[in-house]
Simulated assay, not measured.
Amino acid sequence: MNIFVGSLPFSIDEADLRESFEVYGAVNSVKIISDKFTGRSKGFGFVEMENDTEAEKAIQELNGATVSGRTIVVNKSEPKPEGERRSFNNNRSGGGYNGGGNRGRY
């Protein structure tokens, strides 16, 4: 099960996050999301656990827990529906921000 972890302190690293979840069972992967320009944590991440029962227990017990003075949010990660993804080219008439750019100029 993929688990979302939000409101993380910026000082926490993936090893610390893994350790918090391993108390409840085997952890397949841990990923803290960072800003691609600065490399600084964005304050959220994802933990993948193999066993759904163990994952549910981790969610129940860690949601609302305090980590380094911050109350974290922990819940099951649900993929975004395709229609909610951000796109600069939502129309089918061409590229760019104005739907094709050169229409009507010739």
Rank of each mutant, 00 (worst) to 15 (best):
V67W: 12
F46E: 01
M49T: 00
N51R: 11
A58R: 00
F37L: 08
E22A: 05
D16H: 09
G96W: 09
V74Q: 00
D35Y: 07
N98R: 15
I12H: 08
S7R: 14
F88R: 15
G101Y: 11
K31I: 09
S87V: 12
F37V: 13
G25V: 04
V47W: 04
R40Q: 06
E56A: 13
K57A: 10
R103H: 13
E22N: 14
E78W: 05
N89M: 10
V30A: 02
S87G: 09
G100L: 06
G43Y: 06
E78C: 03
V30F: 07
P9C: 07
V23A: 10
I32A: 01
Q60K: 15
A15Y: 15
G64A: 00
G104N: 02
T66R: 10
P81A: 11
S68Y: 08
I72W: 06
A15S: 12
Q60C: 13
E84I: 07
Y24G: 09
G95Y: 12
K80A: 15
A55T: 03
Y24M: 15
E61I: 04
F88G: 15
Y106T: 08
A55P: 01
N63G: 00
E56L: 14
K42A: 05
N28K: 06
S87T: 14
Q60F: 08
E82Q: 04
G25D: 03
E54K: 11
I59A: 01
R18I: 00
A58M: 04
F37E: 12
N63K: 03
G43P: 03
R18Q: 12
S77F: 13
E54H: 02
F46Q: 02
D52A: 14
A55N: 00
N63D: 12
V5T: 09
V47L: 06
E14I: 08
A58L: 06
S29V: 08
M49Y: 13
S77N: 15
Y97H: 11
R18N: 04
N90M: 10
G69D: 03
N102Q: 14
I72S: 00
D35C: 04
D13R: 04
K80C: 08
N102K: 09
G100E: 03
F37M: 11
Y24D: 07
N90T: 06
S93P: 05
V27N: 00
S20R: 14
A15C: 13
I72Q: 01
S77I: 14
E84C: 13
E48W: 05
V73E: 09
V74S: 04
N63R: 04
K31Y: 12
L8A: 02
I33H: 07
G94D: 01
E84F: 09
A55M: 04
I12W: 03
N98P: 05
E82G: 07
R86I: 03
E48K: 10
E22L: 14
N63M: 03
N51S: 07
S93I: 07
A58F: 04
Y106E: 09
G96M: 05
T66M: 07
R70K: 11
D16M: 07
I33G: 05
I3D: 01
